[in-house]
């Protein structure tokens, strides 16, 4: 056995003792088990209640909604097909205030042809233009997962495919409307079938203007260090989290989105009530506070756009986009 093997064996056994169990871990396992059971129940419910198939075609759109009690034709297709006409944009309506409902768990399965470099988004439009989106590229084979908040029970939600940040030359496409009774079950799985999305032009990653703004704050300094975006996640906004330690903040130049992952929290999607982006070089100032977004649990694969490119502070010229990351415990 060579020296390297001996050293490696000794080192691994030695270093393993660096990883002690924190007292909260047992509780977290239990919480995860409950979440797994909830998810398992939700999946069974979803399968039993209905399957919704959106069929997207190049020029027109048909939405097929199959209910369990609906007669199927001999070929397995539903007997009735409801067709909707693409509209020109999300409508607005006046609705009375209603109590907040738990978020609807939605999983989209998109055609493989949609997995491209173009930052298309799938968006749900709920009441009063409340809009929640996710990149179509985010889910891969597991499907794109997202949670819809701020939906009034009993209201349907429109689903759109929209050009993401930086895309030009294409218009949003209305896929269809998810009926309220399905949404009220709390969990919906949606298969999107159809042809390719129309090609669009995508702007190059943003280049930057000079730094502006003044003020003191965390990370404020006098040197000319690389630009950073500092993200603070409000502790109270992560239910059950034990150590809200933000591990990574990544700006994805392809989608123009910022993603956050943390450790110590539960590996699920949770709403975060405050995400503060702060530019810290050479002086810090608050760029904006965004509410109602979701952050990414480190294990769930749950990915939801936090903020679109236009609301970010772009890096100074010459700073690679990849360096636009920072973590704030």
């Amino acid at each position: 056995m060579g020296d390297t093997e001996i050293d490696l064996r000794s080192l691994l056994h030695d270093r393993a003792h660096d990883y002690d169990v924190t007292p909260s871990l047992t509780a977290r396992v239990e919480t995860r088990r409950k979440a797994l059971r909830r998810r398992s129940r939700a999946l069974r419910t979803t399968a039993a209640v209905a399957a919704v198939i959106f069929v997207v075609t190049a020029g027109s759109l048909a939405v097929q909604i199959r209910q369990p009690d609906q007669d199927l034709q001999a070929n397995g297709e539903p007997a009735g097909v409801a067709e909707s006409t693409p509209s020109t944009g999300p409508g607005t309506s006046v609705v009375p205030p209603a109590p907040a409902a738990p978020p609807v768990q939605v999983t989209f399965h998109v055609p493989e042809t949609w997995i491209t470099d173009e930052p298309w988004l799938i968006c749900g439009h709920a009441r009063d233009g409340v809009r929640e989106c996710v990149g179509v590229n985010e889910g891969g084979v597991d499907g794109v997962y997202m949670a819809w908040h701020d939906r009034v029970p009993g209201e349907p939600v429109e689903v759109w495919v929209e050009p993401g940040p930086g895309m030009r030359g294409v218009e949003p496409i209305l896929l269809g409307t998810v009926p309220a009774d399905l949404l009220d079950t709390g969990s919906v799985s949606i298969d999107i079938e159809g042809t390719t999305l129309p090609p669009g032009e995508t702007d190059p990653p943003p280049t930057m203007t000079s730094a502006q703004g003044t003020g003191d704050g965390p990370g404020a300094g006098t040197g000319g260090a690389a630009a950073q975006i500092e993200v603070r996640v409000a502790k109270a906004a992560i239910p059950g989290a034990t150590q809200e330690r933000v591990d990574a903040v990544a700006f994805d130049a392809d989608t123009g989105l910022v993603r956050i992952s943390w450790s110590g929290g539960l590996p699920e999607c949770y709403p975060v009530d405050r995400v503060v982006f702060t530019r810290v070089t050479p002086r810090s100032y608050s760029v904006g506070v965004f509410s109602g977004y979701q952050v990414e649990g480190s294990q769930s694969g749950c990915k939801t756009p936090l903020v679109s490119r236009e609301t970010l502070v772009a890096p100074p010229a010459g700073i690679p986009t990849d360096s636009l990351v920072s973590a704030q415990p």
């Binding site: 924190t22 396992v29 995860r32 150590q243 591990d247 450790s263 110590g264 294990q299």
Partner: peptide, 13 residues
Amino acid sequence: HHEAEDIAAEAAA
């Protein structure tokens, strides 16, 4: 370490 705990918790669950 934090990620290791996340993974361990998920695996145990």
